[in-house]
Computed example of a mutant assay.
Amino acid sequence: MNPENNPDNHVGARQRPSPFARIERLPPLAVALYLALLAITVMFFVLIVAYVAARLRSGVPTGLHPLPRYFSLSTIVLIVSSYTMAQAPRLYAQDDLASLARGLGATLLLGCIFAGLQVLGWRELMMYGTPFSGPGSQSSGQFIYLISALHVAHLLGGMLFLLAFLLRVIHNERDAVRTLVFIRNPYYRRQLRLLSTYWHFVDVLWVVLFAVFLFMY
């Protein structure tokens, strides 16, 4: 073939898109978040497999004790918090920082309630005869404490970022010029989107964990 007739040699010829083009366009903060979510998913998957294996080895029949009711209440609370967080991008797009601050504040409050209900759930586990350690403890029971505590720790990490963003929203909402600059800044829009992604991920993760506990406890 004549090189001159090869369309790939023409100036301005269309280049084939790289399969990594979309990844290269992602901002570093988004890449870091997605890698963190992948690592968290793998970690909890390993823990769930280890819990199920320990539960089956124990020989104790499932359903012997009911799952703590505070775990059920905390699940409802976290699902509601996912709904309030889902409103945040819409309120941001509507330049309604006052409503955005209220929505983020409600999400933060629901996160605190969830953490408190988890602690009450641990106390209820002890009442059912599932201590974390000691002569009466079982490895499968210890996994419940470990998995739920790790989930709460990841939720608290998200709450810290949520609090920081909420304080920034409250600060900028008090002045019209700061409000305009804040709303038009793509960096803050990206931060809110990544924060929402993380929060929904943590919510879905707990629903999966709760379902495993519900059928295997």
Score class of each variant (00 low, 15 high):
residue 1 M to T: 13
residue 1 M to H: 05
residue 2 N to L: 15
residue 4 E to G: 06
residue 5 N to G: 14
residue 7 P to W: 02
residue 17 P to W: 06
residue 17 P to V: 11
residue 19 P to R: 08
residue 20 F to L: 14
residue 21 A to G: 08
residue 21 A to I: 10
residue 21 A to N: 14
residue 22 R to F: 09
residue 25 R to C: 12
residue 28 P to E: 11
residue 29 L to T: 11
residue 30 A to M: 09
residue 31 V to H: 12
residue 31 V to W: 13
residue 39 A to P: 03
residue 39 A to G: 04
residue 41 T to F: 13
residue 43 M to F: 15
residue 44 F to D: 01
residue 45 F to L: 11
residue 48 I to F: 09
residue 48 I to E: 03
residue 51 Y to M: 12
residue 51 Y to V: 05
residue 52 V to F: 01
residue 52 V to L: 09
residue 55 R to G: 03
residue 56 L to P: 00
residue 59 G to I: 05
residue 60 V to W: 13
residue 62 T to E: 07
residue 63 G to L: 00
residue 67 L to D: 13
residue 68 P to S: 05
residue 69 R to T: 09
residue 70 Y to F: 06
residue 71 F to T: 00
residue 71 F to N: 00
residue 72 S to C: 08
residue 73 L to E: 10
residue 74 S to L: 09
residue 77 V to C: 04
residue 78 L to I: 14
residue 79 I to W: 11
residue 80 V to D: 03
residue 83 Y to S: 04
residue 83 Y to P: 01
residue 86 A to P: 01
residue 87 Q to V: 08
residue 88 A to Y: 01
residue 91 L to M: 05
residue 94 Q to E: 14
residue 94 Q to S: 09
residue 97 L to M: 09
residue 98 A to I: 04
residue 100 L to I: 09
residue 101 A to Q: 05
residue 101 A to C: 12
residue 102 R to I: 07
residue 102 R to G: 07
residue 103 G to W: 01
residue 104 L to C: 10
residue 109 L to A: 12
residue 110 L to D: 03
residue 112 C to L: 10
residue 112 C to H: 04
residue 114 F to N: 04
residue 116 G to C: 04
residue 116 G to W: 04
residue 117 L to F: 04
residue 118 Q to I: 12
residue 125 L to Q: 03
residue 126 M to S: 06
residue 127 M to K: 13
residue 130 T to S: 13
residue 131 P to I: 12
residue 132 F to G: 02
residue 132 F to A: 03
residue 133 S to R: 12
residue 136 G to N: 13
residue 138 Q to G: 00
residue 139 S to I: 11
residue 139 S to N: 09
residue 143 F to R: 00
residue 145 Y to Q: 06
residue 146 L to W: 05
residue 150 L to N: 04
residue 152 V to Y: 01
residue 152 V to W: 00
residue 153 A to V: 13
residue 155 L to K: 00
residue 155 L to Q: 05
residue 157 G to T: 07
residue 158 G to N: 07
residue 158 G to E: 05
residue 159 M to C: 13
residue 161 F to I: 02
residue 162 L to K: 02
residue 167 L to E: 11
residue 168 R to L: 14
residue 171 H to K: 15
residue 172 N to Q: 14
residue 172 N to F: 02
residue 173 E to L: 04
residue 173 E to G: 07
residue 174 R to I: 06
residue 177 V to L: 11
residue 178 R to S: 07
residue 178 R to D: 10
residue 178 R to P: 02
residue 180 L to R: 15
residue 180 L to P: 00
residue 182 F to A: 08
residue 183 I to L: 08
residue 183 I to A: 06
residue 186 P to N: 08
residue 190 R to M: 04
residue 191 Q to W: 09
residue 191 Q to T: 15
residue 192 L to N: 00
residue 192 L to S: 00
residue 195 L to G: 01
residue 197 T to P: 02
residue 199 W to C: 05
residue 206 W to H: 03
residue 208 V to M: 10
residue 209 L to K: 00
residue 210 F to N: 02
residue 212 V to T: 09
residue 214 L to A: 12
residue 214 L to W: 15
residue 215 F to V: 15
residue 216 M to C: 11
residue 216 M to E: 02
residue 217 Y to E: 06
